[in-house]
Design a protein around this nucleic acid. Structure first.
Lengths: 106, 106
DNA sequence: TTTACATATCTAGAATAATAGATATGTTAA
DNA sequence: TTAACATATCTATTATTCTAGATATGTAAA
């Protein structure tokens, strides 16, 4: 079981206090249903590229990049670079640990 | 099982994105350990009065009142008036429902 | 019926977050 | 190499949150 510092509750809650960021996490649960197929690779094993996420939200590229960086800093998502593209996938262990921590601490 | 609208994730996460508010929720889990006994009543059945919460945080009265109002608006705590004092206790059902919703939706 | 007290609300300044345009960085293709 | 592209970072503006002092409201005691 992954240990999440109780102080992280605040940091992760900050990420979840924005609807777009919550939606991104939800969409990444099921990329096949929520995004078109990638061109260079035929799977979503490393997640979804930034451009697709941006298109889906309708927000600017810089805003989405900022959001994804914040989510990555909170360890909620994991980036992988493939050529020109950065793919983001959920960090299931941290998400689960966060919910477990809430169950215990909150 | 209480239904929590997925949109409430954002509202409740906003409450939890502040360390003082998280602490208040934690303290209210075990008032006997975290607060002195009340004068007029010899129990914490309806929670803890605002003044005690304010003392514990060290923040101003108006700030704590604002926090408690926000937490009440998010249904995380329940107020009860006894004479001059307002007591706040946790809304366990909503807290549990929030965590359940996160488990399913997030 | 004043006075004191507990809490809520109003008002405002400071701090932080949201957001996008411009620019920089890193990658691939020509 | 240059050019094109994907993403990240910088800069700046607007919006929201934090926080407290001042004031209002509601309750109980004198």
């Amino acid at each position: 079981m992954l240990y999440i510092c109780p102080m992280d509750i605040v940091e992760i809650s900050k990420v979840l206090s924005n609807e777009t960021r919550v939606n991104i996490l939800k969409w990444l649960k099921d990329p096949e249903s929520n995004f078109p197929p990638h061109q260079d690779i035929d799977h979503f094993d490393d997640g979804v590229c930034v451009g697709f996420i941006q298109d889906k939200t309708g927000l600017s590229q810089s805003t989405i990049s900022t959001y994804l960086t914040a989510m990555q800093n909170a360890d909620l998502i994991i980036p992988t670079r493939h050529g020109k593209w950065t793919y983001y996938r959920r960090n299931e262990k941290v998400i689960e640990a966060y919910i477990n921590t809430l169950s215990k601490e909150l």
